Simulated scan of single mutants.
Amino acid sequence: MEKINQRVRIGRIVYLFLAILFALSVATQIFLAGMAIFISPANWMKHMTFVHLFGFNIPIFMLGFAFIGASPRWAYWQLLGILISIFLMYFTANISAHLPWFGAMHPVFGVLLFVLSCTMVSKTWKFTFNNKNNQEGEA
């Protein structure tokens, strides 16, 4: 067993940082939606604008750092799940005028996205800081 090199270690740490940032961003989105519902509808603009800052951007950067960090296969599958969930979020937000039942699924997919992002943080944390897994390159 050889020790992982510096590039891989940095790639994994940046991937973890981005996963945490993404999970916090999803939580912020849920909070902004709550502000729009319970405080003022004017907050919908914050909810809609904020998603464009992190929505697809952070997962795309995560994909690059997954390669750099020599991440295991599960990391790529989790990213695919995140990207599909984001697509479903956009779809359900924009189709509600034509298919209200799909629009009603928007918060359900939001909760799913939050659970997926928290799971990703947990697994990535364990993978990044478990020395045995880092040396073997598998989780």
Rank of each mutant, 00 (worst) to 15 (best):
M1R: 14
M1Y: 15
K3N: 14
N5L: 05
R7V: 13
R7K: 13
V8S: 12
I10V: 14
I10R: 13
I10T: 15
I13F: 10
I13W: 07
V14G: 03
L16M: 11
F17G: 13
L18E: 02
L18D: 00
L18G: 02
L18V: 05
I20V: 13
L21H: 06
L24H: 08
S25Y: 01
S25C: 02
V26D: 01
V26R: 01
A27T: 05
A27M: 07
T28N: 07
T28K: 09
Q29E: 04
Q29I: 01
I30C: 05
F31Q: 12
L32M: 09
A33N: 01
G34Y: 08
A36Y: 07
I39N: 14
S40T: 11
P41T: 06
P41F: 05
A42N: 13
A42L: 14
W44M: 12
W44S: 09
W44C: 06
T49D: 14
T49W: 12
T49Q: 12
T49C: 12
F50I: 04
H52T: 04
F54C: 03
F56L: 08
N57E: 10
P59S: 07
P59D: 04
I60E: 09
G64I: 12
G64T: 09
F65P: 01
A66R: 00
F67P: 03
I68W: 01
I68S: 00
A70M: 09
S71Y: 08
R73C: 11
W74N: 02
Y76S: 01
Y76C: 00
W77F: 13
Q78M: 14
Q78C: 13
L79S: 00
L80G: 09
G81L: 00
L83G: 04
I84H: 06
S85A: 14
I86E: 05
F91S: 11
T92S: 10
A93N: 04
A93I: 04
N94A: 10
I95P: 01
S96D: 12
A97P: 09
A97K: 12
L99E: 15
L99P: 06
L99D: 13
P100C: 03
W101C: 13
M105E: 09
M105V: 06
H106T: 05
H106M: 06
P107T: 00
P107C: 03
V108S: 11
V108D: 07
F109W: 10
F109Q: 03
F109R: 02
G110F: 02
V111G: 02
V111L: 05
V111A: 03
L112Y: 08
L113Q: 00
V115M: 10
L116M: 13
L116D: 02
C118T: 10
C118K: 06
C118Y: 06
M120L: 10
M120W: 08
M120S: 10
T124Y: 00
T124H: 02
W125A: 08
W125Q: 09
K126N: 14
K126S: 14
K126F: 12
F127W: 09
T128G: 04
T128C: 06
F129G: 03
F129T: 04
F129C: 07
N130Q: 07
N131Y: 12
K132E: 10
N133D: 15
N133E: 14
N133W: 15
N133C: 14
N134L: 15
G137Q: 03
A139I: 15
A139E: 14
